[in-house]
Write a protein that binds this DNA or RNA. Sequence first.
DNA 1: TTGTAAGCGTTATCAC
DNA 2: GTGATAACGCTTACAA
Lengths: 342, 342
Amino acid sequence: MAQSHTSRDVARLAGVSQSTVSYVMTGRRPISEETRLRVEAAIEQLTYERHAGARALASQRSRVVGLFVPFGDGNDTVGKLPFIENIAASARAHDHELLLVTADEGPSGLRRLAGRSLCDAMIIMDIELEDERVAVAAELPVPVILIGVPSDPRGLHCVDLDFAQAAQIAIDELSATGHDRIALLGHPADITRRRLNYVSRFIDAACEHADLLGIRLEVIAPVELGRAAAAAAVDEAMAFGAGGRLGLLVPESGNVQAVLRALNSRGSLPGRDVSVVAVCTDAMAQDAEPPVTNVSMERRDVSQRAMETLFWLLEPDQRKPPPGIALVPARLTRRQTVMPPP
Amino acid sequence: MAQSHTSRDVARLAGVSQSTVSYVMTGRRPISEETRLRVEAAIEQLTYERHAGARALASQRSRVVGLFVPFGDGNDTVGKLPFIENIAASARAHDHELLLVTADEGPSGLRRLAGRSLCDAMIIMDIELEDERVAVAAELPVPVILIGVPSDPRGLHCVDLDFAQAAQIAIDELSATGHDRIALLGHPADITRRRLNYVSRFIDAACEHADLLGIRLEVIAPVELGRAAAAAAVDEAMAFGAGGRLGLLVPESGNVQAVLRALNSRGSLPGRDVSVVAVCTDAMAQDAEPPVTNVSMERRDVSQRAMETLFWLLEPDQRKPPPGIALVPARLTRRQTVMPPP
DNA sequence: TTGTAAGCGTTATCAC
DNA sequence: GTGATAACGCTTACAA
């Protein structure tokens, strides 16, 4: 059990002053090659590491990122892990630690982390349209990145998937392949209720863009999760209009499988008799039966962008373009569920 | 943006010395009712919170728990969230923060957290039989709790599910309901390869206990995940012996659904023609079709136990029994997949 | 019951 | 280029 050493121990061993040790570590002052090597050797020998608390106290920076994770609520519990993992890796790459706070603490969690100077910046996942944390976050003395776009961002930095653009490229694809009608199989009611923001961003853009391209678009919503609801929605979609080339647009990744299954059981083979474009991760699209043409919504892209802007705020010496509300674009991957042009 | 106040500000406002403020907060010294109220009022008024770094520096305790999470690897990505959530809640209940470290950092992560005095205790999830982190952990100046039992625990505190006991009660149930042969549908090969510990604990105990009760037990292993493998294993199980009452024991929760489905498609109704006892969470058992009699393996129970011992180590004033290697018992819940006694 | 003051281990401002 | 030394904001003897 290596008794923890201090920078004084290192200084003594290297035969220099304690402050020199500090300067070697921070690099805030030119050090002669020779003494630097001696100090580094001493550090190595003692396996010395700086005391985080002392460092934070003296430097006014904790080198910690606070992450507010929405546990508990049922939705998409699996997609969150890669997100967190990505955040952690990015923090680590900048020699920062990651402090995890569960969202059920609400605004008080934000105040605690800031008040105790526990972190230099925060990321709040799953921001809802009307989120009581946003107003609190805006008053904090540390930068905050929101994942999701609230109705009033208060000048905070937001990162989210670009749902409007996602809708557009999905419809572009269906248009380019000669479809003349599109059925949008919407989201479950409780999601729509909770944070209509991304839902409405998608649906509004879809309607607008379909209109622009002169394609008929019907929105079928809400569509609950589960086989029965999906089947009913599929029936409704297929009844919509007669003949022609029909494309189904499925923005809720949890419904993709059920929709495909419902089509199959009705004798409509996706990619031959009808088209399906899903909004989901590439992994999910690939695993679907059959592999479904999708507009990718990768949380990793979002976390990446979030951490970029975070460290852009934390290390202002850089020259990269300043961020604002960052919408991560989706991209379309063609698989087997869109009919080729006639 | 509330400019952060210090305890001196509080002291000034309350008209007391700075140390008195500290004593009010720590409670390490009797304070007169009157001044205590004045101080508390001042704290409230300034929304004062102690600087975590300064506190850690002076008190030699960071009030942070380090958690090493095994991301990345594919297995059971969904079960980890409740675990982490539970840890976080428990930490919070003791006014501690949670620092997240991804396991891919390996032993260096342990050394960093300890060397920088970033946390007062650590929890390492998913310990494998031969885990290079264990030896390092044993040398650290902070207590470490292992989730899982390595081949050489080095005196560290371990918490895990009691797989041996789980096997026993499962077999007890099948025995009590008049089964005369049991097929154990084992784990996928790569799991067995990586950390045979829990696998072998289960299988060994099962064999031993079946032997003791005089029931024929056949182990079918490995059984990969997925429908095909499960179906093959089911066929093999049903071929095992002729007639009589057969019970299937499924210790890999990922295979439960597939096994039930395979039985159904062979015209064997679980609970009527054949019995199934699964090892999985209650939620999963309840959601199965049909609801499956299960031996519960709740990660929450493990995290709970881990945090209990952790804070028992951190706050030694208590009188609770000292922990060692803690094996959390499973319990059986009867549902619809075990045939009633003849 | 309360106040004074000495650390805790850094960073950063002076001097030299 | 390097060494003293004063913060940083708290906890905790030691006095009173």
